[in-house]
């Protein structure tokens, strides 16, 4: 009996040896930093002096504020800008991804080639190079406006430097990168049995009817998966807004993404306690939205009966 337990312990230890790097990383680079940033979110901290406990003040300043600690309007603005970005760009991205995937879900010889072409914007779109390009394309004297003026005799605004439109150029850039959900949709479409379509054609269903009665229900778990993944990553967008706005969310904070404001607060103004508080608010918002999506999906998503 005793020998057996000793053997089991040795077995366990030799397995855990393989996990040491990851476990160390988890404790030192994830768990401890999380706990520490939670602590910092209740303090005032500028990295040079030790943190000063201020209780809930950081959160108070974000959402309420009073005469002594005025409300930080830029915070709510950055949250609203980000929410608008997420709620417009993510659904549009998924619609495009699904549309192109359905278009490509045929027996065409060139599918791998087409798939590659449509993935290129996603491959390159996250880079600084493309953000720089975007700034040029949508500038007042940029390519888009030259086309609009020359071909359609319009008088278009300077998209990038107009606070009314700047955010839309960022949304367009995000939607343009629909390659990943497209590939996932394509893989999902291949899983739908052809018999469903054959049977429904016999019953006289047209293509539109088939799309809504077969394709969408069968794909619903994948749509849901894509929605959650894209939402989580859209909330964290940073690089494109940073480059296109010149690092300060301009014009007039209209492209001040949440991550950008967090960076500016923490590393520009040295308000690291406040930035930590923002990080935790972001975590809670993302968590809540994900949970809500899970909830809502319960009635909409069909995982098949497994028969």
């Amino acid at each position: 009996m005793k020998r057996k337990t000793r053997k089991a312990i040795r077995e366990n230890l030799s397995s855990y040896a393989f996990l040491i790097p990851w476990l160390l990383g988890f404790f030192v680079l994830t768990l401890y930093p999380m706990a520490y940033s939670l602590y910092l979110s209740f303090t005032q901290y500028n990295i040079l002096q030790p943190p000063k406990w201020t209780g809930l003040r950081n959160f108070f300043v974000m959402f309420a504020g009073d005469a002594q600690y005025p409300k930080d309007d830029r915070f709510l603005n950055s949250l609203l800008v980000t929410l608008r970005f997420v709620f417009i760009s993510v659904p549009l991205k998924l619609v495009f991804a699904l549309g192109v995937a359905v278009l490509m879900n045929r027996k065409l010889r060139l599918i791998p080639f087409y798939r590659a072409i449509y993935y290129i914007p996603t491959l390159l779109g996250g880079s600084v190079a493309i953000a720089v390009l975007w700034r040029r394309l949508f500038a007042g004297d940029g390519v888009l406006n030259t086309i609009l003026r020359g071909l359609f005799k319009l008088d278009p605004p300077a998209w990038i430097s107009n606070p009314k439109y700047a955010l839309y150029t960022l949304m367009l850039l995000a939607v343009w990168q629909f390659g990943s959900p497209m590939i996932i949709f394509l893989a999902g479409l291949k899983q739908i049995p052809q018999e469903y379509y054959d049977a429904s054609s016999v019953d006289g269903a047209g293509r539109t009817r088939q799309f809504f009665s077969i394709t969408l229900p069968c794909l619903s778990p994948i749509i849901f998966f894509n929605l959650v993944m894209q939402m989580i990553s859209a909330f964290q967008s940073f690089t494109q807004a940073f480059i296109i706005s010149g690092g300060n969310g301009s014009p007039l904070d209209s492209t001040m993404f949440y991550s950008l404001y967090l960076y500016i607060k923490g590393f520009g103004f040295g308000e690291m306690g406040y930035a930590s508080a923002m990080a935790w608010v972001l975590l809670i918002i993302i968590g809540a939205l994900t949970a809500l999506t899970f909830r809502a999906s319960g009635s909409l998503v069909s995982y098949g009966s497994g028969e």
Binding site: L23, T30, P33, S37, L40, F235, Q236, L262, L283
Partner: peptide, 26 residues
């Protein structure tokens, strides 16, 4: 096979969804 494998794996999956911001400053 080791004790606690499922718990650790669940933790791994959670860290996958975690926004990097909460570990950024520390």
């Amino acid at each position: 096979r080791f004790a606690g494998r499922n718990i650790w794996f669940a933790i791994l999956l959670i860290t996958m969804m975690l926004p990097g911001h909460v570990t950024l400053i520390p």
